[in-house]
């Protein structure tokens, strides 16, 4: 009975696993075979790289990728800096209004900027930042999630360490930089991976604020490229998809363990 159940459970686990990678496997199949095999599965289908060539020719992937990289880095750099300062203040400073400030931060965990696209678009138009890198990044330059994670981590640093650093003659920012930042390294890594995969994949807001190739990230580019109206066939779309997800996927496969641990780390807090 028990062993029958175990076998059943094991088989279901593997079946579900295969089901879960099927879309990706299909993308690989279609991308590396000629278009006539996109909907036909045959072991004798010849391999080809032509789909990648035509995808590359039909959409400015290089530019899209550059845009995504610039936007994601801009957001991450700003988040790491601003969240460190805010997280430190909320964790280690005593002051009137701290509870209120923390409540303001927590509200943003619930109401992400994408819900407010209408008003945020108006703000961006008012600032004349439509279709710019800064415009895509602006609503995300500070992250409530990042502040929250760093606050939790900074709270666990022993007071003696901070006092000792003060005796050594370190000042406010020096203490943050030399004592708190190194100690919170796992949190920084976890937050960075979560943030990068979020913003690499973000779509709705960039769709709203970008108009041209100048600032359009990969996700928005892919939506235009893959739209049925564009008349591109499955094989080329699959090739384009692989180009778009390639860098993140490779990074993920190499640092798989770190990635998953980081998501776990960020999730427990």
């Amino acid at each position: 009975m028990s062993s029958w159940f175990q076998t059943f459970s094991k088989v279901s686990a593997y079946l579900l696993g295969i089901l879960w990678v099927l879309p990706l496997l299909y993308a690989f199949w279609a991308a590396f075979h000629p278009p006539e095999f996109a909907t036909k599965f045959s072991l004798t289908a010849p391999l080809t790289l032509e789909n990648f060539e035509s995808a590359w020719d039909q959409a400015p992937f290089f530019r899209y990728m550059l845009n995504t990289i610039v936007i994601t880095s801009l957001i991450l750099a700003s988040q790491l800096f601003l969240c460190t300062l805010a997280g430190y203040a909320l964790a280690r400073e005593k002051f009137a209004g701290r509870g209120f400030a923390f409540a303001l931060v927590l509200t943003q965990l619930m109401v992400m900027p994408e819900v407010l696209i209408v008003e945020n678009y108006r703000t961006l138009a008012g600032l004349d930042l439509i279709d710019t890198y800064l415009g895509v990044g602006l609503p995300y330059l500070a992250s409530a999630f990042g502040i929250f994670l760093l606050r939790q981590t900074f709270k666990t640093v022993p007071q003696e360490l901070e006092d000792a650093a003060r005796v050594e003659g370190l000042s406010g920012l020096g203490i943050i930089w030399k004592v708190f930042v190194p100690l919170a390294f796992p949190t920084y890594l976890a937050f960075s991976l979560v943030s990068v995969s979020y913003h690499w994949n973000n779509f709705l807001w960039p769709l709203v604020v970008t108009n041209t190739e100048a600032s359009r990230p990969l996700t928005v580019g892919m939506a235009i490229f893959g739209a049925p109206e564009s008349g591109v066939d499955w094989s080329v779309i699959s090739a384009g998809t692989l180009i778009a997800i390639g860098p993140l996927l490779i990074l993920f496969l190499i640092f798989q363990r770190r990635f998953i641990q980081s998501f776990m780390h960020a999730g427990i807090k």
Binding site: L24, N201, M222, A223, I245
Partner: peptide, 23 residues
Amino acid sequence: LRLAFFTPTILPMITVANIWLFF
């Protein structure tokens, strides 16, 4: 298995939707 289950998480919704459109 863990890799298989987790992979959809890191892929952009937009690009995987293109694949599902074919499905």
